[in-house]
């Protein structure tokens, strides 16, 4: 298990380096003049020159990349003399527009994104896995067909539509819930829920549909496995056959997918966050796009990749813990 862990960690480090390199390439090589991009809209020539100096754009590319990567782990000082700015560990870039390290900006938004992602995930797991299991166990019945047709319909709903219809009906017309804003769980758990419930539904519906279909397939496939038949041949109660011998292996791929989706969601909920004006990392990303605050765009891109790569690692470890056979790999 230790050896497995070390191998996985090494692979993750390698992937992260590739991710850094590609992100760096996108933002430093792709634009005509990175300094203009990083400075943002309506920058004076002097300010652009200052940014150019602070980013060390005169250095060879490899040196710039080196500073960039080491900055993440050790922090760095951008520029020299009186114009030097501190970007402490972990330095994900420095926003010249808001005169703040990108990391600080992102950390302010992280609680919202985590609340949004976790709540939505809980919701879609409940809905999706529940629907999938019921559908699989009642395979071929009218209920199964209705549920599966329903999932196709739900999966095709554009998030904009779901969000705006929910807002219109629940908030504007019925006045059942407040217009969503972020309230910390620690501040007021009840309001945390009532404010986030609409964004959760919006974010969860598509995945609920996808998970329902995947769970159904997986359960049907697993229930046909010889070991499930063995469990019946032992004389176990059907509930135990399904619950213990069938569902556990059937839900393993669901766990895998959940990990990856959660990782992707921390920065990937940008449309939902924009629609509900929730101050999450995705909204930060979308706003920075509009303001052309390129360092923030780059920082979030990198952070989002880090989330995904590390959630892949967590998923692999979880998998090894659930399925003993995977520990050999």
């Amino acid at each position: 298990m230790i050896g497995y862990l070390l191998r996985r960690l090494a692979a993750m480090a390698a992937t992260l380096l590739v991710v850094c390199a590609l992100t760096f390439a996108v933002f430093y090589l792709f634009p005509a003049d990175p300094a203009v991009q990083f400075c943002g809209k309506d920058c004076s020539t002097e300010r652009i020159e200052l940014v150019r100096q602070q980013l060390g754009l005169a250095d060879p590319l490899i040196v710039q990349f080196w500073h960039y990567v080491t900055g993440i782990f050790a922090g760095q000082t951008l520029g020299t003399g009186q114009y030097a700015v501190q970007c402490g560990f972990p330095c994900f870039g420095y926003s010249f527009q808001s005169a703040q390290p990108v990391w600080d900006l992102m950390m302010d938004r992280l609680p919202t994104s985590i609340s949004l992602a976790l709540g939505a995930a809980a919701l879609w797991l409940l809905l999706g896995v529940g629907t999938g299991v019921v559908s699989a166990l009642r395979r071929g019945t009218r209920l199964d067909r209705t549920l599966m047709v329903g999932t196709i319909g739900v999966a095709a709903l554009p998030v904009y539509f779901t969000a705006m219809i929910l807002l219109y009906l629940v908030v504007t017309v019925a006045g059942l819930l407040p217009y969503p804003r972020y309230i910390a769980f620690t501040e007021h758990p009840g309001q945390w829920i009532s404010n986030l419930i609409l964004p959760w539904i919006t974010l969860a519906l598509l995945n609920a549909a996808i998970y329902a279909r995947m769970t159904r397939n997986s359960v049907i496939e697993t229930m046909a496995e010889p070991y499930v038949r063995t469990a019946r041949a032992k004389g176990l109660r059907e509930r135990r056959v399904v619950g213990k011998h069938g569902l556990r292996p059937a839900l393993t791929p669901v766990v895998t997918m959940l990990g990856m989706d959660l990782g992707g969601l921390l920065a990937g909920a940008l449309i939902t966050e924009s629609l509900f004006s929730l101050p999450g990392i995705g909204k930060l990303f979308a706003d920075s796009l509009n303001k052309s605050d390129q360092p923030v765009v780059m920082g979030v891109t990198l952070l989002a990749s880090f989330f995904i790569v590390s959630s892949n690692l967590v998923v692999d470890l979880l998998y090894a813990w659930i399925d003993p056979r995977a520990r050999l790999a």
Binding site: P226, Y227, R229, T230, A233, R248, P249, D323, P324, R325
Partner: peptide, 14 residues
Amino acid sequence: AMVFQDALTALHPY
């Protein structure tokens, strides 16, 4: 009781 053909698939992997 039954003895199945391929014990690798007939016994539960978990």
